[in-house]
């Protein structure tokens, strides 16, 4: 019973970025894994985004997978490695995603169709040949961006923000 009493009440905080239980050595394995997995997961998320129209996937799932990639990176690298690949504030990413989605909804009004109508766009791209896509893909892209932004924002607030509070309360020193 004592084991059951103890196992889930650790004496140290969990999931602190870049910190190991004793000392300041980074968890090498985790970090390497994160560095390898991060781009892989991002690519996988793009795949999910694009195939969403045909098999399970779509903007949501894709965004969440990409978001989890950032989570992994945060846990492995902490605030040190934290952040977007490009220097942009998460709320802006969220806002952009939302804006893209709403604009996708509004644009059809300009051509006289009902809001949120979609159409098939066929574009002839050099080298690739004709590519056709549903305009609703833009909505999916908006969703994808927004979800990635939301997850990164959560890392910023619930992750880094709480860690900062802990630092200031001197409950944890990185």
């Amino acid at each position: 019973m004592t084991i059951f009493d103890e196992w889930d009440a650790p004496r140290e905080p969990w999931m602190l970025p870049g910190a190991c239980r004793r000392g300041r050595t980074r968890r090498l394995l985790l970090e390497v894994a994160a560095r390898t997995l991060f781009p892989t997961m991002l690519v996988f998320s793009l795949y999910l985004l694009l195939v969403g129209h045909y098999s399970p996937g779509g903007g949501f799932a894709a965004g969440l997978v990409a978001g989890l990639a950032f989570v992994l990176r945060h846990i492995a690298g902490g605030s040190v490695g934290f952040g977007m690949p490009v220097p942009v504030r998460p709320p802006v990413v969220i806002g952009s995603g939302l804006a893209i989605a709403v604009l996708t909804a509004l644009v059809p009004l300009l051509v006289g169709s009902p809001a949120l109508s979609s159409a098939k766009l066929a574009v002839d791209i050099p080298l690739l040949g004709p590519v056709s896509a549903q305009t609703s893909l833009f909505l999916d892209i908006g969703v994808y961006l927004l979800i990635v932004g939301v997850v990164v924002d959560l890392l910023r607030s619930l992750g880094a923000g709480i860690e900062r509070d802990m630092r200031e309360a001197e409950e944890w020193l990185p």
Partner: peptide, 8 residues
């Protein structure tokens, strides 16, 4: 849309 713009 306005909300998105005010965030951006």
């Amino acid at each position: 849309l306005g909300a998105a713009i005010t965030v951006i």
